[in-house]
Design a protein around this nucleic acid. Structure first.
Length: 569
RNA sequence: CGGGGCGUGGCUCAGGUUGGUAGAGCACCUGCCUUGGGAGCAGGGGGUCGCAGGUUCAAAUCCUGCCGCUCCGACCA
């Protein structure tokens, strides 16, 4: 490819909207352009990268026994109604109607479609296990699209679905996918970590996320400083903390004017914050939920959803709190009407003695409240968010927090969808059994963004050779120097013949411009051809990542030398 | 969804309070010059100032509504 013809308009200035480095660089380097919030056109360079990632994904998926197919993006409402997710999925689903006023959606995921597909074609245990995948655009009308490709409303996803006879089969399918994912992200040159995850809206139980480690990541990872434990912070389990035994004292109601935060209350009453219990109120489809955790702890909304069986939580407003017999700033578990409010206590709260909490009356708190004696919550569960330094649930060593970009997730769905959509087969005994399912996603476009987040410097992108848009750029330094130009053309032709993906910067630009663009786009190798090195009978090969410069004698096989170098990148 | 900000040539942004013929830098085109890290000079093309109303002799500027983009928040009890 000739740079004079390449559709990759580079920008000197960063568009004002760009937030994270991958987004800035992709816009500046002419990789993509935005068409609407969270929707982008992939220009030729980006598309080459995406196809390379896709091909790595294909190779490893095929190798793991999955078969590629392609389902429609537009899906009929009926199958979503059948699974019950038409109403559950909410505003995140792009919905549309056809000319007959029939309802459809743009696929945010494909469990319904694939399950109805398979239930129509698979009848016998002999046809199982079966594993299929596709790579296509997915649509999610995100509450807040941001960070370029990291959270778009349209994105490229590889989604795979496994169908097994039983749990044992699912386990094997799951492990095969897990291993394939490790290979895929390793080959893409990512620094990543598989972590235990919550299975969220997709449903089922048993899940891992593959996190590309990056400070710009939206996900928080809890990993153990001693053992191999690692989990998404939303999933990280916590054991209740034992408090030293105290004799229960009589409850005291105290005046605490203008103490609407737990810090203010504890300062006012001269109490350590560990002797207090704070509340967070949510509304959801199950009703008003009041959650109580120790004053210095934070609540984990995902765990609360799972505990009460809610699909989504929203902060409750003051009006609802008043209607439930309490008020903002002064909520406490004692004296609440279980008819009006669902009380959820963190397990640690149940171990506390003589604690302080709101009295459900403006301006008052209780002292010496004790679980059991003074209140009985509807649910007791681990609902707190793990913090750095908390004990590892496996070995007790302190937890370390890090950030990551979720580039892949594997789920055990069990029979969630096969049950809802009646996907069954006949076993050897002729008895009907539900298929046991798994699903496995990779954010292909997000993987590209993650690769950039992990591989860049002040000058631009630095592509790992495996997913680089091109491997080599040949730069004639002086466009007016005929011998340099001729030599550059010769090298370009030679490398192309050898099957090395090469571009030549044949633009009549000054060297600085060419070097800046080459660095920005991040070709792993740059071959600079100028009068100086030419006179010395040498070819200059520069590594983008390290800046290391190699001089290859002109008489040597340059293509072979380049191939050797690429293996190391 | 709630709150803030922004919308002026392809990009980054001035101008707006104080209404009076549309600006700069970059990019682009032509020519000269230059060629080992985003040069210089000269000339040139390109904008219904997001859309729709309103006020006014006159609106990019003031008012109303809408649309779009963007940031923050949704862990406050």
């Amino acid at each position: 490819m000739r740079c004079s013809k390449l559709y990759a308009p580079t920008l000197r200035e960063v568009p004002a909207e760009a937030e994270v480095i991958s987004q800035k660089l992709m816009l500046r380097a002419g990789f993509m352009r935005k068409s609407a919030a969270g929707m982008y056109t992939y220009l030729p360079l980006a598309w080459r990268v995406l196809k390379k990632i896709e091909n790595i994904v294909r190779e490893e998926m095929d190798r793991a026994g999955s078969q590629e197919l392609l389902m429609p993006i537009v899906q009929p409402a009926e199958i979503w109604q059948e699974s019950g997710r038409w109403s559950v999925y909410g505003a995140e689903m792009f919905r549309l109607k056809d000319r007959h006023n029939r309802e459809f959606c743009l696929g945010p995921t494909h469990e319904e479609l694939v399950t109805t597909l398979i239930r129509g074609d698979v009848r016998s245990y002999r046809q199982l296990p079966l594993n299929v995948y596709q790579i296509q655009n997915k649509y999610r009308d995100e509450r807040r699209p941001r960070f370029g490709l990291m959270r778009g409303r349209e994105f490229i996803m590889k989604d795979a679905y496994s169908f097994d006879r039983d749990e044992e089969g699912l386990e094997a399918s799951y492990q095969a996918m897990y291993k394939a994912y490790e290979k895929i992200f390793t080959r893409c040159g990512l620094s990543f970590k598989p972590v235990e995850a919550d299975s969220g809206a997709i449903g089922g139980s048993g899940s891992h996320e593959f996190m590309a480690l990056a400070e710009s990541g939206e996900a928080e990872i809890a990993s153990c400083s001693a053992c191999a434990y690692a989990a998404d912070i939303e999933k990280a389990e916590l054991h209740p903390i034992e408090a030293p035994f105290e004799e229960a004292l009589p409850v005291e109601k105290v005046l605490t004017p203008d103490c609407k935060t737990i810090q203010a209350v504890c300062e006012y009453l001269h109490l350590p914050v560990e002797k207090s219990v704070k509340a967070v109120a949510f509304k959801c489809d199950k009703g008003l939920v009041l959650c109580f955790v120790r004053g210095d702890h934070e609540v984990n909304e995902i765990k609360i959803c799972n505990t009460v069986g809610a699909s989504e939580l929203e902060m409750a407003d003051e009006e609802q709190l008043l209607a439930a017999g309490t008020c903002g700033g002064y909520m406490g578990p004692k004296g609440l009407d279980s008819e009006k409010v669902i009380v959820v206590c963190d397990a640690t709260v149940m171990k506390m003695h003589n604690f302080c909490c709101g009295a459900n009356e403006a301006g008052y708190h209780f002292l010496n409240v004790n679980p059991g004696r003074d209140f009985a919550p509807a649910y007791v569960a681990d609902i707190r968010l793990m913090a750095a330094g908390d004990p590892c649930p496996h070995c007790g060593a302190p937890i370390i927090k890090a950030r990551g970009i979720e580039v892949g997730q594997v789920f055990k769905l069990h029979t969630k969808y096969s049950k809802a959509l009646h996907a069954a087969y006949l076993d050897e005994a002729g008895k009907e059994q539900l298929m046991v399912m798994g699903c496995y996603g990779i954010g292909v476009s997000r993987t590209m963004a993650a690769a950039i987040e992990q591989n860049n410097d002040k000058d631009g992108m630095i592509w790992p050779a495996a997913i680089a848009p091109y491997h080599v750029i040949v730069v004639p330094v002086n466009s007016k120097d005929a011998p340099s130009l001729a030599k550059a053309e010769e090298i370009y032709a030679q490398l192309c013949r050898a099957g090395i993906e090469t571009v030549i910067d044949d633009r009549n630009e000054r060297p600085g411009v060419k070097f800046k663009d080459a660095d920005l786009i991040g070709y792993p190798l740059r071959i600079t051809v100028g009068p100086k090195t030419l006179a010395a009978g040498q070819i200059e090969v520069r590594e983008r990542k390290s800046g290391a410069v190699h001089f290859v004698p002109a008489e040597e096989d340059l293509a072979a030398a380049v191939k050797e170098l690429l293996k190391t990148l």
